[in-house]
Design a protein around this nucleic acid. Sequence first.
DNA 1: GTCTATATAATGATAGAC
DNA 2: GTCTATCATTATATAGAC
Lengths: 187, 187
Amino acid sequence: MSKPSTKAKIIDIADQLFYEFGYEHTSFASIAGEVGISRGNFYHHFKSKDEILSAVIDRRLMNTQQLLDDWHDEGKTAEGRIKCFINILITNRAKIKLFGCPVGSLTNELVKLEHSSLPGANKIFILFKDWLAKQFLALGHVKDAEKLALHLLARSQGIATIASAFHDEAFLYQEAETLNQWLSSYA
Amino acid sequence: MSKPSTKAKIIDIADQLFYEFGYEHTSFASIAGEVGISRGNFYHHFKSKDEILSAVIDRRLMNTQQLLDDWHDEGKTAEGRIKCFINILITNRAKIKLFGCPVGSLTNELVKLEHSSLPGANKIFILFKDWLAKQFLALGHVKDAEKLALHLLARSQGIATIASAFHDEAFLYQEAETLNQWLSSYA
DNA sequence: GTCTATATAATGATAGAC
DNA sequence: GTCTATCATTATATAGAC
């Protein structure tokens, strides 16, 4: 592994800070501080804050695709693969409890800013949705695959919202179990 | 009806703007502009921006309590009353599609700001939760009333998140129907 | 109670030396 | 590629006249 470039470091740190503190609340000063560079250096790599957001979204898209590919190898059955999705709520419980879902909370913010990167952020949702729909299709739900996929996506979003509002980790366990029960009625 | 005081007007406008553009993104200048007063006049009524947020949350708490009281009179049965809750997704579809849920999107933001008003905003969630739990209790779900209430709350949150991200009103109709079906299995 | 004028700090962004 | 210095703008907030 070669050492990460400054540009890669900026994207990595911005990704974290946008998640933990929100896009607008994260300043160049705080990113620069974390990366260990000066604010001026910043604009050598990115022309604007929006451009960093774009890069962060692209990074998240890549990471999400990688995650889905990994799940495809892990899960032997379509049901098992959907369970991988549900299980993020448990795997990422510590962060979800504190900051909610990275995708949902970002779109939530971009919606209110009427930000031009909302469609980009939505692409992450769509990656999940299409992947889930493929699994439901494999389970024989030819007509309802899309609907079931979006339904599950919404369910996971709501769980993350409530869990983060109340900083309630137990709720994540409880609702992940409820989702698995729901899934078994479709598998 | 006496004409609303300047203070009441500020709270009313701030409530709308916080919903549509977010708390942090809403400036004093924009509130003052909408109300039709100068920025300086502002601080005669509120000592800080946080204090306005507090007042907005108090207002939302009162309005929510009023809404729940109205539903109590409207719905003849516990099931009917829960359906009133589910039906907000339809009644408020135009705004939810554009800005999400006022409660969920506010807590989402306050979580990331680590804002001291998060517990206050959560009280709105708790009002809904306790009211819903009471209805599920009336339906005979003695042991699961709390769990079912929070589950339904989370479901509605997720639906609002997805609907606003994609500006998709049809999804609100589709999922409200799914929720009503879910409810009928508990009623 | 409302206004104008202003203080102060932080923001995103630029210019130019090294 | 990184830095320092700086700009223009905006933000919250204050002081004091009317």
